[in-house]
Design a binder for these strands. Structure first.
Lengths: 325, 325
DNA sequence: TTGTAAGCGTTATCAG
DNA sequence: CTGATAACGCTTACAA
C-alpha cells in the first residue's frame, strides 16, 4: 500500500519529477498542455497521493499549528479552540489540539512534542508553571500566542478577559440586590484568571463595606470541592449568594445544592464565570459571565498567523470584555 | 530559530551523525561511556531538538492517527475521541481529530489530507456518502476502523451500538407506562444509526399493537427541527411521550417544550439517545440511552493499533449494548 | 518548456 | 564501538 511516489508518476507520464512537482504546485505558466494532461492521467491511473511529510522536510514548514489547552473539560477552551480551527481552515493551516490536563509536566511534554513535529506555531493556555520553557521559545523567536491566562514578565502576545472587572460587577450586582453573605468558590489560586477573579470579589466586597467571611471562601481542586461546599452549605448562617469560579466549579455547586435540597434562585443566588451551554436551555435562574470565546480564539489565531508569516511587531496583551447574562 | 541539527550535535561532540542517532534511539549497547556523555553535553549546550518530520520520512511512519468525527457537536463523539486519545497516549501515538461536520465533501477532504500527512491509520465516524473512497482505502490495506455507523458491503472493522434494540426497549418502557401517543424525532434518515433507531421504534409500536401516527414522526435537520416540533406540540392530540434521536435533537425538543410551557415528566415524557452531561445534574426527569462511549473508543483504538502493527485478522463488527438510565 | 542534481534531517546498512 | 554513505519523497535553482 501507499507506495506510489512522484517518481512513479513521472515515469508513467514520461516526464521528470520536477515537472510533476510543478504541476502539483499549480505552476502551469510554462507548461505544455499535453504534458499537463499526461501527468493528470498518470496521477489518476496510479492513484497518486503526494507525501506532505517529504514536502514539509524540504520547505521547513508543516502548515500545522498546535493548541495546548490547560484543560479540555472547560467549555470555554473548546469554544476558543473551535474558533482557532475555523480561522486555520481558512488559511491552509491545520490545528492540532492537546490537553495539558492542568499538569505542567504534560504541558511540557506536548510543547516539546509539537515542536519536534515541527508545527509552525503554538497557541497555549498556559499552566503557568513552565516559565523557563516559555521564555526559551519566545527568545528563539518561535511563534507563540498565550490565551486565557497571563504569565509574568514575558514579552508575548496574549489574549485575556477582564476577569477582575467582570467579577467585580457580578458581585456588585449581588450587593445591589441586597445580598450580604456572598460566597466565592474557586480552584487553587495558581493562575492569573483565578487570582484576578478573587481580587474582583475582594474589591467589590470592600467597596460595599462588607467583611469577607473566610468560611465563605472556598479554594479547592475539583475532587475536594464537594466536601468543602457541603460544609459551607451546612453553616448556621448560610451564604445567600455564591460565585462559582468556572464551569466545573459550577457543576460541583449545582450538585451540592441539589443534594442539600436547596433551590437556586430561591434559597441561594448563583453567578458562574463561563458559559454553560445546556444550562441556558433549562430554566435555571443563574447569571453567567460570558467571555467572547470565539472572538478571542480568532484573534489568537490571527496573531499567530502574523508571526508565522514573519510580520514583526511588538507583543501586546489584548483584553476582551466579558458580559453578564 | 530552530536550526540546530543532528550534524551540529555530531560536530560539537566530535562524533558522527550516526553515533548521535544511535544515542537518540537508545541504542547504548555498544556505546562508549565518554561518547555518550559528550553527546549528552552537546545536545544540552546547543538545545538540540530532534526533527520528527525527517525521521518520519525515513521510517515511513508518523506515529499519528487521524480521527474523523461526523459531527463534533455530539457529546458522544467527544467521549469516544477522548478514549481513543487515551489509548494512543499509552501507545506512543498521537491522535488528531477532524470534524467532518456531516459533510461528505469535508470528510473526503480530511481523509485525503490526513493520508497525505501520512498518518498511520484512521478512525472514522463515516458520513456514509463516500463509499468509493472507503473502499479504496480498505483495498489498499490502509488501517481503518469505522465507529458509530455501519457502511454497507464493506469488509472493515466497525464498532457500533445496538441502536435498534435499545430504542425498542425504550419505547416498550413508554408503552408499559401506559403511553399510547409516542412521538419520534430524528435527523434525516441517511445513516444507519438513525434508521436503526427508527426501526426499533416501529417494531416496538407494532409489537404493542399501536398505529404510528405520521404526524408524530419528525424527520428533519437541526435548523428545521424547531418549526416541526412546534407543529407537533400544537396538535390537538399532543403526544404524551417523545423519543429524541440524539443530543442535538434533544436540545431542540427541550427548547421547544420550554417555549410552549410544557413540563418534562409532567406534560410529556422524554427519552433521548445519548448522554447529556449537564442534564444529569439538574433534576430533569429524562431517560437517557447511554452508549458505552469510552469502551467503544478504546476498542476502536485497539483494532486500529493492531492493523498498524500488521496483525492480520478478518474484519469484524463489534456491537456494544447501551443502557437506559 | 522540461530535465538534472543538490539538498532537507533523519535512519539503516555495512565496513572498519 | 563508531563512521561513511545511501536512501526517504519532495522542492528548487540552474541548465538545457
Amino acid at each position: 500500500m501507499e507506495k506510489v511516489t512522484m517518481a512513479d508518476v513521472a515515469k508513467a507520464a514520461g516526464v521528470s519529477k520536477s515537472t510533476v512537482s510543478q504541476y502539483l504546485n499549480n505552476r502551469f505558466e510554462y507548461m505544455g498542455e499535453k504534458t499537463k494532461q499526461k501527468i493528470e492521467e498518470a496521477i489518476e491511473a496510479l492513484g497518486y497521493q503526494p507525501n506532505y511529510i517529504a514536502r514539509s522536510l524540504k520547505q521547513k514548514r508543516t502548515s500545522m499549528v498546535g493548541i495546548i489547552v490547560a484543560n479540555i473539560m472547560h467549555y470555554f477552551s473548546t469554544e476558543v479552540s473551535r474558533a482557532i480551527e475555523d480561522y486555520c481552515n481558512h488559511h491552509d493551516l491545520h490545528a492540532i489540539v492537546c490537553n495539558a490536563d492542568d499538569d505542567p509536566e504534560k504541558e511540557k511534554k506536548y510543547i516539546d512534542m509539537l515542536r519536534a513535529k515541527q508545527v509552525d506555531g503554538l497557541i497555549i493556555f498556559p499552566t503557568g508553571q513552565n516559565n523557563q520553557l516559555y521564555e526559551n521559545m519566545i527568545r528563539q523567536g518561535y511563534p507563540v500566542v498565550f490565551v486565557d491566562r497571563k504569565v509574568q514578565n514575558l514579552s508575548v502576545f496574549s489574549i485575556v478577559t477582564d476577569n477582575r472587572e467582570s467579577t467585580n460587577r457580578a458581585i456588585q450586582q449581588f450587593v445591589a440586590k441586597g445580598h450580604r453573605r456572598i460566597a466565592f468558590a474557586v480552584q487553587p489560586l495558581k493562575v492569573s484568571t483565578r487570582t484576578e477573579r478573587f481580587e474582583g470579589y475582594q474589591q467589590a466586597m470592600k467597596d460595599a463595606g462588607l467583611e469577607i467571611n473566610p468560611d465563605y471562601v472556598i479554594e479547592s481542586d475539583i475532587p475536594g470541592m464537594k466536601s468543602k461546599l457541603e460544609e459551607l452549605f451546612s453553616l448556621e448562617e448560610r451564604p445567600t449568594a455564591i460565585f462559582a469560579g468556572n464551569d466545573r466549579v459550577f457543576l460541583e455547586v449545582v450538585r451540592c445544592l441539589r443534594d442539600k435540597g436547596l433551590k437556586i434562585g430561591q434559597d441561594i443566588e448563583l453567578v458562574v464565570f463561563d458559559n454553560i451551554p445546556f444550562a441556558q436551555v433549562v430554566e435555571t435562574p443563574v447569571t453567567f459571565i460570558i467571555q467572547p470565546a470565539s472572538e478571542m480564539g480568532t484573534k489568537a489565531a490571527e496573531l499567530l498567523f502574523e508571526q508565522i508569516n514573519k510580520v514583526d511587531r511588538e507583543p501586546e496583551e489584548f483584553v476582551f470584555p466579558s458580559k453578564l447574562v
